[in-house]
Nucleic acid binder design. Sequence first.
DNA 1: TTCACACTTCGATCATAACCGAAATGTCTC
DNA 2: GAGACATTTCGGTTATGATCGAAGTGTGAA
Lengths: 231, 231
Amino acid sequence: MNSSPNIAEIASLIGEPSRIAMLVSLLGGKALPAGELAGAARISPQTASSHLAKLVEGGLIIQESYGRHKYFRLAGSEVAHALEALQAIAPAKPVRSLRESDRLKALQYARTCYDHLAGQVGVALTDKLLELKLLEKSGEEFVLNASGKMKLQAIGVGVEENAKSRRHFARPCLDWSERRHHLAGSLGAALTRRLFELGWIEKLPGNRAVRVTDTGWEGLSEQFGMTRLPR
Amino acid sequence: MNSSPNIAEIASLIGEPSRIAMLVSLLGGKALPAGELAGAARISPQTASSHLAKLVEGGLIIQESYGRHKYFRLAGSEVAHALEALQAIAPAKPVRSLRESDRLKALQYARTCYDHLAGQVGVALTDKLLELKLLEKSGEEFVLNASGKMKLQAIGVGVEENAKSRRHFARPCLDWSERRHHLAGSLGAALTRRLFELGWIEKLPGNRAVRVTDTGWEGLSEQFGMTRLPR
DNA sequence: TTCACACTTCGATCATAACCGAAATGTCTC
DNA sequence: GAGACATTTCGGTTATGATCGAAGTGTGAA
């Protein structure tokens, strides 16, 4: 019917509740085994297997075998970007249970978004970078200026090697919970990686939620003048 | 099940061939009446009506009534952006007929992408802007520098008022046919609007395809040193 | 008022695909 | 090799939703 590339196929692949649940789990950036993904989507392993095969076929995820386990991860940042773009136009979903509500609050507070930091903390950090004039807006895009480069290098973020990579360097990413932008792209990923290395943030057992440690708040306050955000 | 916003709902809304056909038609940026959208998707008016109601309900399109006609248009540039992001990860679709093939070639040559210029011509123009150092890449983002601003103002593109708008100013947009970036965002839209005003490009009867006029080639050659691209 | 037209609502049909039980395949441990 | 475990294949059931014919609503023109 339609001459453009096959969006319908890819979108209907994404538009299935169980598959979305699995894709969202993979948005954390980690590779996960089939069984765990089945659990996340609350479906039987057989059904999950069928869905995963379709997602691989469609090029959305990539499969790696380790012994009797099969691990799956997102096929790349373009896929994550498409999921983010969909999140940005998706209506908020009503919360069902108290447990859900707690999980949701944790996610809204701080989480990883594929490979960079999002949620209240992510947005606040991005705001501070802008406020301190380390990062600038060019139109609606972010640009890291000379003092920003120095500052980030000082705390050990590899800036130079990332600037060369083909991927978007300092892309803004629309936060679904805050409805405001946070820092994404390879710079956002490098910064977030460093925050983990420094022990300033750490993953919570739940899927993508993140906690800022006490030393983390000290560091963020010292380096960027951030004050501890109320939960 | 899942705590994040309701991507599944929105994606399954998008992931239906007839609805995609209608959304892609609306990517041209114009508002279209229900009947025309039904024709584009090759479905009966009843079916189209049902689909359109769902799209409105889902917030993807907006409805305006003029007398006994109802016009529909995309709800905003976020929706267009999400569709583009999906296009970027969608596999190319096999071509069916000769007529299709012609239509496809016209689209690949030059078309509007929501509100800016895409296809071979769009990518070539963006390349020229970069080559002439009017536009620069910052990481993977575009920035319009001082000489670029002057040049575009000289041919009548309203640059200042756009820089202030909340929308992305000079976003790169991945071209599905060329697999390379062209200029999007509010600057891309303003430039394209001006090209229409100048009569350098004009819409072809088919949906989104665009033709470069003879005066258009003259102007593009004079202003940006572009040579006529073979079809 | 009458007709034509654009669109919507209702109802029934039909195709698709999500789902799981049962059984098979493959891999690791003992 | 035996048994446990992760994943897949097969088959049959079932729910969902896309589709269109027929009839209804609302608008504009004659």
